[in-house]
């Protein structure tokens, strides 16, 4: 890892903020295969971090370890001051603080869009129904599909479904949002509508960790880019540094393949 002036500057700026996600020496195996090797990184409040890397590099595994959809074996993960351990109460607490958007949307097909959004705030946050219904209306407005509230997920396009999924995650009023390849399953003409919502979210000051292949989004929105390969963090830097002046050979190779 090298520090250019820009990286130094942003690190200084970030140093004054609280740590939201701290990973320290995280290892993860699937059987004999090591998916994460000594991953250490700190993500600050209101920071947007984009994780890039070839497929199979461990990006998704890492992001899924952060709300314990996958369990890491070594190292520590501390989210918003709470360490992820086997204590289920900690896990539940962290999951209600961390919103997640999946590649395959994973909406609940038997519930209407509105019920998809209100379910968790009602039963997990125990909020009164009236307040939650209003929240759902507002969120659908925010992601640009207020007229779809009473439809079922199967009646929506992929882009609309993913926007509902974002609204569903936001309904829990999370402090952190994780995006696991949110646009990979979408047709090209729908990618933009989802990215627009994500950009708006980033501007509103949400702490975001995004695994994606959208280089344009990374360049425009990210505060920092983390490049991974074979389960390791190879390079960390600002978008400018990363796209114009990468130091590591593996990063250069990756960029030459995709750009």
């Amino acid at each position: 890892m090298t520090n250019t002036d820009a990286t130094v500057a942003i690190n200084e700026e970030l140093g004054s903020r609280d740590d939201m996600i701290v990973c320290d020496g995280v290892d993860k195996w699937y059987g004999d295969f090591q998916a994460l090797k000594d991953v250490s990184a700190t993500i600050k409040e209101r920071e947007v971090v984009v994780v890039l890397g070839p497929s199979g590099s461990g990006k998704s595994t890492w992001i899924r370890c952060i709300n314990r959809l996958e369990q890491h074996q070594n190292g520590r993960i501390i989210v918003d001051g709470i360490e992820l351990t086997n204590d289920t109460r900690n896990v539940e607490k962290i999951r209600s603080e961390v919103g997640m958007v999946f590649q395959g949307f994973n909406l609940f097909p038997h519930l209407t869009v509105r019920d998809n959004i209100t379910l968790a705030p009602l039963w997990v946050r125990k909020k009164p129904r009236g307040e939650v219904e209003q929240l759902a209306t507002d969120l659908l407005e925010r992601v640009g599909i207020p007229e779809q509230a009473d439809k079922f997920p199967g009646q929506l396009s992929g882009g609309q479904q993913q926007r509902v999924a974002i609204a569903r995650a936001l309904a829990m009023e999370p402090r952190i949002m994780l995006f696991d390849e949110p646009t990979s399953a979408l047709d090209p003409e729908m990618i933009k509508e989802v990215l627009d919502v994500m950009k708006e979210l980033a501007r509103s000051g949400m702490t975001m960790m995004v695994v994606t292949h959208e280089m344009g989004f990374a360049r425009e929105v990210a505060d920092r880019i983390i490049f991974m390969e074979s389960g390791e963090i190879v390079e960390v830097g600002t978008p400018e540094h990363f796209f114009t002046n990468p130091t590591e050979d593996r990063t250069k190779l990756f960029l030459s393949q995709i750009l």
Partner: peptide
């Protein structure tokens, strides 16, 4: 039922009982 349904429920912080009675069993 697809794995994603379980993952989405977990990511929202639903408890096992809630996940079973609101998401898994109806489907």
């Amino acid at each position: 039922i697809q794995r994603g349904q379980y993952e989405a429920s977990d990511a929202l912080g639903l408890t096992t009982v809630q996940r079973t009675s609101f998401i898994v069993l109806p489907q």
